[in-house]
Design a protein around this nucleic acid. Structure first.
Lengths: 128, 128
DNA sequence: TATATAATTCAACGTATATTGAACTACTTC
DNA sequence: GAAGTAGTTCAATATACGTTGAATTATATA
């Protein structure tokens, strides 16, 4: 009886993604990238963070598929970060799907004192 | 120059919420609660978790405002958990607002070799 | 070739937190 | 009142991870 399970949502993967996004500085970096900022140095200036710390956070974001990284064609010392649009779209779709309040079903106690009052629960369910 | 900041989104608070949700077992608990399950014991049976561990995770969810807790009226030993619909609605709204791909603006390098090509970038921006 | 620069990698540290078992609280039932 | 039950709290442990400074890599310039 798999009841109301969502199709194709691996909660371990979702948890991993959310963990990546649960870091304030990473959210700040994402916010800057969405504004069009792109290189390590400017992020460092705007957020007052050391380059290696930014590298660390961007690496986490990149490995999660949220951020793309590419080097400048004319001067390969510079690296440009950008948001992975597709990944972001998939993310909010998965997130919104799992946490959608519409999924919440009426209570159905299978133990405790309320268990014997199942009939009442059923009425409750019918009434929504 | 606050550029493209979202209105009324505190990234620290959002990060804190996502951290709460970045735990696989907590997502499993939320999933069960959405299915109508409600008491500690059944969650323990379904997820094979010890009662104290469930208490811990539910406490985190409760303190984040995601889960409601109430005791049985006739037998106060039993406690019923439920999802806070309103909190969930606000959550997906905030999440979807912040990570919405529509927010992604064209790159605008303020440093690096591309910086001198600002005119090109402006054209890019105009072309969207 | 030597120096400078942008970014990454590495090692070390401190903190936060999931997990576990035991003790405890509140309540019910016998 | 004694025993049992549902759940919580506590103390201890282990692990994960953000942060820092130093070392390293790769590239460009003088």
């Amino acid at each position: 009886m798999p009841t109301n399970e969502l199709p194709h949502i691996d909660l371990d993967i979702l948890a991993g993604l959310l963990k990546v996004l649960s870091e304030p500085k990473r959210l700040l970096i994402i916010n800057l990238l969405m504004e069009g900022v792109q290189c390590n140095c400017e992020i460092g200036d705007r957020l007052q963070l050391s380059p290696n710390l930014i590298s660390h956070h961007v690496r986490v974001l990149r490995e999660a598929g949220i951020v793309n990284v590419e080097r400048d064609a004319t001067d390969a010392r510079w690296v440009y970060y950008s948001i992975n649009r597709q990944a972001l779209g998939k993310l909010i779709k998965t997130f919104g799907g799992f946490f959608d309040p519409v999924r919440i079903r009426p209570r159905h106690p299978n133990c405790g004192p309320q268990h014997s009052l199942d009939a009442v629960a059923e009425l409750d369910a019918a009434a929504q």
